[in-house]
Structure formats: C-alpha cells, structure tokens
C-alpha cells in the first residue's frame, strides 16, 4: 500500500506547482487568482498550433494569445479543466494538446515503456535462470567447493577494497 502511494506520489512529482502565477500578457490576467492558476496550468498543456513545439503559455504568436483568451473565457463561463481541453481538441484536433489522448492509436505509446520494461525483466529472469542451470550442470566436488570458497573470500576482500575502481 505504501509502495502504491509512493508510486502515485512520484507520478505527480513534477506536475505540482504551488505558486499562483500570472499570465504571459498582463492584460489577459483574470481577477480570480484560483481561475488564473487553472488557466496557466491548462495553457502549459495546450500547443500553439503555428509554433514549433511551444505551449500557448509561452508563445508570442497571435494565435497563442487568442487561445489563451479562449481558455480564460471558458473557465469564466464555468467550464471544468477537462471541458476546456475537450472544447479545444474538438475544434483543433488532438494535436492541440500536449498530453496525447488514450485510445487505440496511442495505446502503444502509453504502454510501450511498460512493455520494454516487461520484456527486459523477463529477459533478465531467463538470464538468471540460465545462470543457475549453468551452475547446476557443472557441480563441484566438495574439495573444489572448499577451495573455491577460500579463493572467493580472498577475491571478495581484495575486490571490496578497491570496489570503486570499476564504477
């Protein structure tokens, strides 16, 4: 349970922003600081369509300014954050949002990293199992075992003392 909590904690680590801040252009700023903060958060996830990979929050383009005002108008009209985003994506397509939607076309995108981790993890599992088999396949005689342990201990000690060398 605590692990799960930590994971969720981590997921949101970089999305928190504690400070209410003002908009790009002073004349756009909403009077209600709570609404303004929400507007800023949304603006950071909305793409300026005529720019190269820039959110409307930091773009100088006229279109970005228009979109910033649209976002604020929708918020003042009482829309939720999700409403504003779906309003924008309905008009401009998914391209306008920096958070890609979750659907069949983007399934591989969202789950790709997990897939790589899973395949890598399974590969590691079989690697270690193969290692074990290798060990079992060539058992040592008790004398060999004793000698090996002696050597290993010695080796570990010398290795331990200069252990940092390798890294």
């Amino acid at each position: 349970m605590r692990g799960l909590f930590l994971l969720t904690a981590v997921l949101f680590l970089f999305t928190v922003n504690s400070n209410p801040v003002k908009a790009f252009d002073p004349d756009e700023v909403l009077d209600d600081p709570a609404l303004e903060t929400r507007a800023r958060e949304i603006s950071k996830e909305v793409r300026c369509l005529v720019c190269q990979n820039e959110p409307i929050d930091s773009s100088n383009a006229d279109l970005a300014k228009e979109l910033r005002i649209v976002v604020r108008e929708r918020l003042v009209a009482g829309d939720s954050d999700e409403d504003v985003k779906s309003y924008l994506s309905a008009r401009y397509g998914d391209f306008v949002l920096f958070r890609p939607p979750f659907n069949t076309a983007t399934f591989l995108l969202w789950f790709g990293p997990l897939l790589v981790l899973g395949v890598g993890g399974i590969g590691m599992f079989f690697f270690y199992r193969g290692n074990k088999k290798l060990k079992v396949a060539n058992p040592l005689s008790p004398e060999e075992e004793a000698r090996l342990n002696l050597l290993l201990d010695k080796d570990n000690k010398t290795k331990g003392s200069d252990s940092g060398e390798a890294s």
């Binding site: 999305t15 998914d94 306008v96 920096f98 076309a105 990293p113």
Partner: peptide, 24 residues
Amino acid sequence: FMEALGGGRVSIGPPFYNNTFVPV
C-alpha cells in the same frame, strides 16, 4: 509514425514524460 501511417497528428509534451519517464 502515427502521421506516416495516416493515424492523425498528436502532440507529445511534458505531461507524457512526467507520467512515463520520471517513474522509471
């Protein structure tokens, strides 16, 4: 890839990386 395969255009920005890259 999506665009090349005719799947429409998407933008991938910080929200994606915050949810995938950071946990790794």
